[in-house]
């Protein structure tokens, strides 16, 4: 661009700014409109959240935290929560990555098929899918009945009320988030890169390891963080599908609220869960923009 052109551009830009300024009332119009909306969120969401934190420390006092952490049932549920969340994230990654890759790198029919399957599961609520897994897995359920009819088993397989069932359900619910996160990244890799690598004699596995995997890493990381954080808050699915030992923190919290003998105790548990989520996100924020992860979360619908 010549100096003269940029000068013209500058003038039109200035004019545009001038018009924008002149078009606005003295006080910032959008701030004026947005402030009541901010206040509503602060009152309707900020205050309840603050009450949880406040009550956890004052009702009757910080003793809530020592009591909660001293409770072996809660400690166990805390570790179990982390364990199940890690396992579900790994399972979602192992099953979701190939899915995303095939969805990005196959013909129209295959892609449509995978996309429709993904959307069908996404659009069915978690509660309904929990119910569906119960129908599929229980002793008199679809899988056991069919296997018995085919004469493959005599007694029902133990595939419900245990960690296996809880993990199957949670993985099926969380994998779609990971698939979408990875898919977005793989779509952005030019297929020519893969062709070039293989054209120069790389085997498929070498090509995958040195080209596709590194380039899709940001999607893997974002997807894993999202899935892990979501898994930490799960409790109805593991409660219905899992056994008594698959007790998640969320369930402890919900039970403590319903009992409501000591509200402060439930609040302290909630703050601990919130801190756990906060820690994961804070650690993540050092490597990537959180807004990218949250955008993935909003694709859930």
């Amino acid at each position: 661009m010549s100096g003269r052109d940029s000068g013209v551009a500058e003038v039109t830009d200035l004019a545009a700014v001038g018009i924008r300024r002149a078009g606005r009332p003295g006080i910032d119009f959008w701030t004026l409109l947005g402030t009541p909306a901010m206040l509503v969120v602060l009152v309707a969401f900020g205050v309840p959240l603050f009450m949880v934190v406040y009550k956890s420390a004052t009702d009757p006092g910080l003793v809530n935290y020592t009591d909660v952490m001293g409770d072996p049932v809660f400690r166990k549920s805390l570790f179990k929560t982390i364990e199940i969340a890690v396992a579900a994230t790994l399972a979602a990654l192992l099953l979701g990555y190939p899915y995303a890759y095939v969805m990005a790198r196959s013909g129209r029919w295959m892609r449509s098929f995978l996309l429709v399957a993904l959307m069908v599961s996404f659009w069915t609520s978690l509660l309904i899918r929990t119910f569906a897994w119960q129908v599929l897995l229980q002793n008199t359920g679809v899988i056991n009945t069919e296997l018995k009819r085919l004469g493959l088993i005599d007694t029902p397989l133990p595939i419900i009320r245990n960690e296996f069932a809880a993990l199957v359900g949670m993985t099926q619910m969380l994998a779609p988030f990971l698939i979408l996160a990875v898919y977005a990244l793989i779509r952005a890799i030019p297929p020519e890169l893969e062709q070039a690598a293989m054209g120069m004699g790389a085997r498929r596995s070498t090509m995958f390891r040195t080209v596709v995997l590194p380039l899709s890493m940001p999607g893997v990381a974002a997807g894993c963080v999202l899935v892990f954080v979501l898994a930490l808050g799960f409790y109805i699915t593991p409660q219905v599908l899992g056994g008594p030992s698959e007790r998640m923190v969320g369930q402890s919290i919900a039970e403590a609220v319903h009992a409501f003998v000591r509200p402060g105790l439930a609040c302290a548990m909630a703050v601990i869960l919130l801190l756990l989520v906060g820690l994961v996100l804070a650690a993540t924020a050092r490597f990537m923009r959180l807004s990218d992860i949250l955008k993935m979360g909003s694709m859930s619908e």
Binding site: G250, C267, L273
Partner: peptide, 8 residues
């Protein structure tokens, strides 16, 4: 997490 917001 929903359960935390829910208590609030």
């Amino acid at each position: 997490p929903l359960v935390v917001a829910g208590i609030g």
